[in-house]
Each structure stands twice: as C-alpha cells, then as structure tokens.
Design a protein around this nucleic acid. Structure first.
Length: 684
DNA sequence: CCGCCTCGAGTTCT
DNA sequence: CTCGAGGCGG
C-alpha cells in the first residue's frame, strides 16, 4: 500500500511542477528560478523512485514540457527532443559517470562538453539542401512551426553547403546575446514597453512573435549541437564530436568552446572552470552538457523515461532567486536624499546570502509595481550588486501593501521635499543627524581626506557624544578623548587596553596627516552638492585656493569647462552660507592646507588617450593605474565609449572588455599595458 | 530640443 | 554596478 504522506506530497509536487512548467514553456514567464524548479523536479523523481506505485503516465516526470500554444501551426517531431538529467556538483557528476561506466561493462569512453545555452531549443528540417521547416521544442513530441521567424536569423543557413543527406533534422539553441538583450530593452524602454527580465525570456519572446518582421529586427543567434535524424546519408559520423564537425562543414554555427575529453576529472574541471568564467561569455549559459561521444555507446545506453542516460547537464548555481520582500526601509544620504531599500527574507543567490537590495526611489518601486509582502525575483546585477527584478504577481495574496514615502524624514521628522521633475525626495534639514553622520563618513573616506581608523562606528560615537558637531571638529580632538571613546567600544568587543591606545594613536596621526591632502581632496570632502572628485579637481586647478574659490561669482565658476549653471549655483550657495564659512575657517585655523601645492609640469607622452581599466590588476590598484595615466597626460574613465583608446583588462574582466571589442577599442593585457608605459618612458 | 557622454551619489557583501 | 541628472554639441 502507498504511504499516504508520500502520496500527498507527490500530488502537491505535480501540481506545482505542472503550473511552473506552463509558466515557463507556454507563457515564457517563469515565476520561480530554474534552480527552484529543478529542486521540485528532483524531489518528485526521488519520491517516485521510492514509491513506484505512485508513478502515472500523467506525471511531469513522464513528459518533457507543456503543450504548445494555439497560434502557430503544430509540427511533429518524429524523433522526440529529450530533456536532460541534472547534476549540481562534482559528486553527482562522478556518480553519473560511474553509472554509465557500469552500463558499458567498464569500458572507457570519451565525452564531449558543451556550454548549455540559456535560450530556446529548436529543430530545423532540411530537404534537398534547403531549410524546409523550423519548430520549437514544445513538449518534445509536438512543437510550434516557426519557420518564417527562424528564417530571419542570419546564422541559420537557408541553403546547405556541400553534400548533405536528402532529408535531415538539426537541433540547436536560439538565443540572444547579452549585448543584444540590453539593446532590445533600451529600445523597449524608449517606447514605454515593459522590459524583459533576462535574455532567455526575450529570446523566447522574439522567436515566437507572430509577425516575423519583429523577429527579424532582433539580434538572435543560434548554436547547433545535434543531428536529430537523417535519411539517405552515406558516410555519416560515428561520434558526437565528428557530428559537430560535420554540422560545421554544412554551414551551421557550432559553439567553438566545445571540447572532447577523455576522463571525468577533466570534464569536472571544465565544468568548474566555467562556473567561474561564465560571466565572461557574451551570452548566457546555465550549465555544461556532458555527452558520451561514441554514438554506438549512446544507442546502447538508451533513454530512461524522457532522459537519455548518455548525457547529463551540469547546472551552474542560480544567478536569480525568489524570496519575500519583508519590508522597505529608508536610508538618508549625505545630501538628505531618501533612499528606499528592500529588506528581504535571506536568500542564497550565486553562493551569497542576500538580505538587502537598493530600490533607488519611489518612482522605480511604483514602475516595477513592487509591494511590501510580495514574493520578488532577486538577482545580482553584473553578478555582484543585489537587485530586485520585480514582483511575482501571481503569488499575491491581497495582503501586500503599496509603498509610500512618509511625509516626514524617518530620522528627524522634518517634512520632506519632493521637487517637481526630480526622482529623489529629500530631507531639507541640514542639521538632520543622519546627514551629519553621512557627511562625516564622506569627509574621512578614501578619495576625500582618507583618514584611516575612522570607521562608521567611531564617526557615530563622536557625533553621539557631541565631541564632533561638524567635520572641522575632528582636528580639535585630543588623544585622551579618542582613547576614552575607543576603550568604551573595546569593553564590548573584549579587546585589551594596549590595543585601544594603539587604535586611538593611529587615528590621531591619521587625522594629523590628512591636513596635508591636496586641495582637490578637501573640496571633494566638503560634500558640496554636484561636486565630486572630477569637478573638485577642475576647481582646484582653476582657482588654486579655497579662498579664491569662495570669492568666485557664479559667472566666474561657469567659465570653467564642465561647469554649468546648476553646479555653479550649488557652489556659490555653499560659500554664501554662514555656517559653512565658519567650518572652513575652523579648518584653516586647525592647519589644514587650503592651497593647491605647486604642481610640477606634467609629462604628457600619453596626451589625448582615453583609458578604461577593468578586472583585477596584478601590479596596480585600479585607482593607482588611473592616476598614473592621468599624470602622463591621458584620461581615465570607467565607461567604455567610442572615444576610448585602450581598455586594460586584468584578471576576470567584466562586460567592459566585450563592449570594447564591439566599439573597436584596443584591449590590452596588463603585460601590454606595462609595455606601453615603458615606451612612454616610465620606469617599471 | 534631442542624444551622447560624464559625473555624482548611493549601494551589497566578504 | 546602476540610475539620475548636468553639460554640451548638433
């Protein structure tokens, strides 16, 4: 008799899986991540294996996908397009290999590894050397006829090169490159259309347009990876690897990164290497497909359920996840801007626990229709910064609350300001404790006065005790005051007295050293609105001293290249405020240098060049490299544009290197960059 | 007035 | 890294 607990669970799992299958395959609008779906499937398979009496022909494990939608013609796949079993780590991969080795009576075999494209699987039938039909995978047995759309994809040959079987079917994955995806979304944003969440969704959406002209306008691509069947073919390949070569010879696009390997250890290393490097790919891949190379062996191994035993998908850890939005908090920035952020039920995304994510501003929240209590899709933008993609609308219970900014500042309760046409709401109270703290943290930060040993905790404690009321006060602190404060903190952390004294001493000497920072650093540190590092540099060069800058009129300021009316007004406003002038005077009396140090005439061997640095460099920090090329007369920015001359790519470069290639900028390795410096007369 | 390009400001996690 | 917004040229 069946275990009733298992029966209930199996039924529940099937309902879930059927529903999500439908979302994914029919609507192209998944609401859980692939990893979560895989987990449901895995649990069902395990339960069915333990309770074979519960298996029915209708179970999702017994079929490949959902029924196709009605709008397109239906095409039968005489040889069904199978799905793949998944493994998630090295152990499971080794277990698969052991199983296959056993089934082959211990014989050794080669394997082919291919990146698993995150796109849409298609089958293309050629007759007499011409593309006859193209179809989606559908449920594996019946797909949608989308020939007209596939014909628009330029990497699909309409006519075959050279000798080919009279009739045959090739299989491949249609996808959108990351660059193509961004381009498409920018276009849609301009037209006010809803944005696609990721390249897979938009690729699927593009291929299944009823109007082929829309498909044609999208930068779709294809990698072909298998021969489904063939009639009247003489001298056909005997291995999968040869099949790939054969397909390439016929004019199909085959992923050049595929490899044939002899041992499972090499296969595992290949998979693990791509887990690390996948973000360097110009397209999205969600795993590596491992196939037994010998087609005779494939036949012998056969198919179980709907999964071949001769292939397996090594899945990458998910980049997206879903979780609940518990609440929306608000931070107050140094300029008084109110910045909402998401408080999330902790969730693992690509190996990191995410608890918070920026939500930018109220308009952004409304545009994405994010509500408190929603289940939301979370991803790490550029694989790093957590980001809320959007809500899963169908999981709403009606208990969700729309987010509204409060009327008053969450810290000081001053009524907030919402200037018309501006996205950011602000707290106008310059005495707001939140602003004071952010301003002080900014003042001591790297790139500003760069005072090491003054972290968030110390800044907060100084303000709290009233030892510091404005940024200039830190230059009047005594060693005793700091020691007492640091000791107070140490009691909690259990450090001993000597450490406390040392820390206080370090802070005092760091404060002392900061008095000699260049004028630009001080201008930046003051936190004048619209004056960041670059503008501070311009101002320092032009005016040469803080006094000269303070005396400048708005008209004088606008003479400086890159400074327009807004920035000029902001600077003038800063120096017409009594309180600010008092702070500047206190800094001067404390002995902070407010003049530009006389600058040596600069060498300019790299005059006119634009550099962008990306990735991790061995011999420089990124800012170090930037200031070095600036000293040599070049410019350094963080965005690759048409004006960029060189992109210097270190270890693990991001998307910038790709963009550089697109725009035709030269990409240099660190070696080549060092070489360039030598030629420019810099000693290594 | 629009479409670049740059800069500023705020951000997460280890 | 992302988004907003200022500056500026066409």
């Amino acid at each position: 008799m069946a275990d009733p607990v298992a029966r209930d669970r199996v039924e529940w799992l099937r309902e879930q899986i059927n529903y999500h299958n439908y979302r994914y395959h029919v609507l192209d609008s998944p609401e859980i991540s692939d990893a979560q779906f895989d987990a449901l499937m895995q649990e069902l398979r395990t339960l069915e294996a333990q309770h074979p009496e519960l298996v029915t022909p209708e179970s999702p494990t017994q079929r490949v996908g959902a029924a196709p939608v009605e709008a397109f013609g239906v095409i039968d796949h005489p040889v069904p397009l199978l799905s793949l079993g998944n493994v998630f780590n090295r152990e499971e991969l080794l277990a698969w290999h052991r199983r296959v080795t056993g089934l082959l009576d211990g014989r050794a075999f080669d394997m082919v590894c291919e990146l698993k494209m995150d796109g849409l699987a298609v089958a293309l039938v050629y007759e007499g050397g011409r593309l006859a039909t193209g179809a989606t995978r559908g449920d594996g047995y019946h797909g949608e006829e989308i020939t007209q759309n596939l014909r628009t994809i330029k990497s699909i040959p309409l006519v075959i090169q050279g000798a080919a079987p009279r009739r045959f079917e090739v299989r491949g994955e249609v996808f959108l490159t990351k660059a193509g995806f961004e381009q498409l979304n920018q276009e849609r944003a301009r037209q006010g259309l809803p944005l696609y969440a990721n390249p897979r969704n938009s690729g699927a959406g593009s291929v299944r347009q009823l109007d082929p002209r829309i498909t044609a306008a999208r930068p779709l691509d294809i990698f072909v990876y298998a021969l489904g069947w063939a009639e009247d073919g003489a001298g056909m390949p005997a291995t999968h690897w040869e099949t790939l070569g054969f397909l390439k010879d016929l004019g199909f696009r085959v992923n050049p990164l595929s490899v044939r390997l002899g041992s499972i250890e090499e296969v595992a290393s290949f998979c693990e290497e791509w887990v690390e490097r996948r973000h360097t790919l110009p397209y999205e891949a969600d795993g590596v497909v491992v196939k037994v190379d010998n087609l005779g062996y494939q036949q012998q191994l056969g198919v179980v359920g709907r999964e071949p035993r001769w292939a397996v998908a090594y899945k990458f850890p998910a980049i997206q996840g879903t979780t609940r939005l518990l609440d929306i908090g608000i931070n107050v920035g140094r300029t008084g801007s109110l910045n909402p952020y998401a408080i999330l039920k902790p969730v693992q995304v690509s190996g990191v626990t995410i608890r918070h994510a920026a939500l930018h501003n109220e308009e952004d929240i409304l545009r994405k229709d994010i509500r408190i209590g929603d289940v939301v899709i979370v991803q790490r933008a550029g694989e790093v910064i957590p980001e809320v993609v959007g809500p899963v609308v169908s999981r709403r219970t009606g208990q969700e609350r729309e987010f509204r900014l409060p009327e008053g500042c969450p810290v000081c309760e001053t009524p907030i300001l919402r200037p018309a046409g501006e996205a950011m709401a602000r707290c106008p109270n310059r005495a707001c404790p939140a602003q004071g703290l952010e301003l002080l943290k900014h003042f001591v930060s790297r790139g500003a006065m760069d005072i090491e040993g003054m972290g968030q905790a110390l800044c907060a404690a100084l303000l709290e005790r009233g030892l510091v009321k404005d940024v200039a006060d830190i230059y009047y602190l005594t060693a005793e005051q700091l020691e007492a404060l640091v000791m107070g903190q140490n009691k909690r952390t259990g450090n001993d007295i000597a450490v406390g004294q040392k820390r206080a001493g370090n802070a005092i000497s760091a404060i002392e050293q900061s008095k000699a920072r260049p004028l630009a650093s001080i201008l930046f540190a003051l936190g004048i609105r619209h004056v960041g590092g670059e503008t501070a540099e311009l101002l320092a060069q032009r005016f040469g001293s803080l006094a000269a800058l303070a005396a400048a009129s708005e008209a004088d300021l606008m003479q400086v290249e890159g400074i327009g009316p807004k920035v000029a007004a902001s600077i003038a406003a800063y120096f017409s405020d009594e309180e600010n002038l008092r702070i500047v005077e206190k800094l001067r009396q404390a002995g902070v240098a407010l003049e530009a140090a006389p600058t040596a005439p600069r060498a300019t061997p790299l005059q006119g060049l634009e550099f962008v640095f990306t990735g991790r460099l061995e011999r420089f920090t990124r800012t170090g490299a930037e200031s070095l090329v600036k000293e040599l007369g070049a410019n350094a920015s963080s965005n690759v544009t048409r004006k960029t001359s060189y992109v210097v790519a270190g270890e693990e470069p991001g998307s910038k290197a790709d963009r550089a290639r697109q725009l035709g900028a030269k990409v240099l390795s660190e070696e080549e960059f060092l070489h360039l410096l030598e030629e420019a007369g810099v000693k290594g």
